[in-house]
Design a protein around this nucleic acid. Structure first.
Lengths: 242, 242
DNA sequence: TTGACTTATATGTCTAGACATATAATCGTG
DNA sequence: CACGATTATATGTCTAGACATATAAGTCAA
């Protein structure tokens, strides 16, 4: 859809070829397993050089819409498992995108030698120092999420002296630590006393939990748990092409 | 990572160029905003033609690692919002992957003219017929998830006569309807009476909810709500490269 | 100083070839 | 018939050019 329009306004040849094929796949005219015309056939049909159709087909293959096999041809793939691309925005960006006022409040910060629990949570073996941070994000002065974070000082020494009373640790890390990998785990819990108070909801209310564990080239950076009121917050994931 | 190995075993030139640049970005040597060497500079450095470096750079741009601007050059992108790739598997596959026995049970099936609520949920305006299905998936005979689904018969007429007492509607649709787009919304609720009974958990226990809305080229296909016990089920999403 | 015009340039697309390589299909042999 | 060797072929990669086009930067006039 976004792809279709993106193609429509720039009617270069290879994009037209790609869109033509894509349309046939999406409408079911070419079902999963169907063999797409050979490159030389498309070359003849569109009257262009092979590099051009190759570019179109390569992009379709990269998008997992087709599968290319040497000597055999190109085939429409069957969608075996559903992917979904989940866009987990920075909380501030998320709130301002909703047109609401962003608020931030540091609840606690501690610099300490890593306890056994800390090391377990960060997935590190060696003893070292960590910063533990608890804070709250709010939208129009209504609690939006509470954050409970651990930063490994062995990987991010600057975090020891950073001022987290104004800037959320999430944004700070985003600006001070280059590209990272992360793993998110999403689950649901009911609010305990402490959580209920921090989020201004009742005890026993549902909460959405995101646990994010971040590292860079096998080096642990941070582990964070975000708690959202379950009835007000939703994660949206678009499947195949967002 | 998977990309690195994928490149390592096929040391073609453009893949080597792509990997070289990617490494510099990932290690932080070229921070966000940094200008990547011009194509003609890379041509000189690698002693190849421009098409080859162009292919490497185009793929990096497609992966959103760099941004290309005419006349200006190519620049390392700053990760403004975090992506995460969420793999939402077919429930049967998910359970068997855990090494547990899959069980399926149809609880209810109704064919009816779409009510206003149905039309709202499916996002269609015209009146028509729908199939409403309630079913339960279990792992080793323990309830794993309950499913509440609506299928638009205008888009999938075959669903009227399909036998959902043996085959889950999810797999049936996967095999009978070609490529689709979908949107997932994840939230948390607490179990009400009906849910608690179906999942064999206590009333008030947290549940993870996935609402999936599926369509194909602007045609609605199905809307489904999946309820998982919140303490036992977790969604895992890997960031950048799965 | 500002705005309109011009120019230089990096990327975007494309061609008409080439050789490499994996592999489906064929052929031959035991 | 089964199995190994051969061959044909579709894709994978690459070249050395070309023209198109958007736009940053420089130029000049109001």
């Amino acid at each position: 859809m976004s792809l279709a329009t993106d193609v429509a306004d720039k009617p270069t040849l290879y994009k037209r070829i790609r869109a033509d094929i894509e349309k046939r796949i999406l409408t079911g005219e070419w079902p999963p397993g169907h063999r797409i015309p050979f490159e030389h056939e498309l070359v003849a049909r569109y009257g262009c050089s092979r590099m051009t159709v190759n570019k179109a087909l390569s992009e379709l293959a990269q998008a997992d819409l087709i599968e290319r096999r040497r000597r055999a041809g190109s085939f429409v793939r069957r969608p075996q498992h559903q992917w979904a691309v989940l866009k987990i925005a920075d909380i501030r960006a998320e709130i301002t995108a909703l047109g609401r006022g962003y608020g931030y409040e540091l609840i606690g910060r501690k610099l300490r030698a890593a306890t056994a629990a800390d090391r377990d949570r960060l997935g590190v073996k060696k003893a070292g120092k960590v910063v533990a941070i608890t804070c709250r994000h709010s939208a129009d002065n209504v609690p939006f999420a509470v954050e409970d974070r651990l930063i490994d000082l062995a990987s991010v020494p600057d975090a020891a002296t950073a001022d987290f009373s104004r800037e959320p640790p999430g944004s700070w890390l985003l600006h001070h630590v280059p590209w990272t990998e992360a793993e998110h785990t999403i689950s649901a819990i009911v609010a305990d006393n402490r959580t209920a108070e921090a989020l201004d909801i009742s005890v026993g209310a549902p909460c959405l939990v995101i646990d994010r564990y971040t590292w860079r080239s096998a080096r642990t950076i941070t582990a964070v748990r975000l708690l959202y009121p379950g009835d007000s917050h939703r994660l949206v994931a678009r499947f195949k092409g967002g």
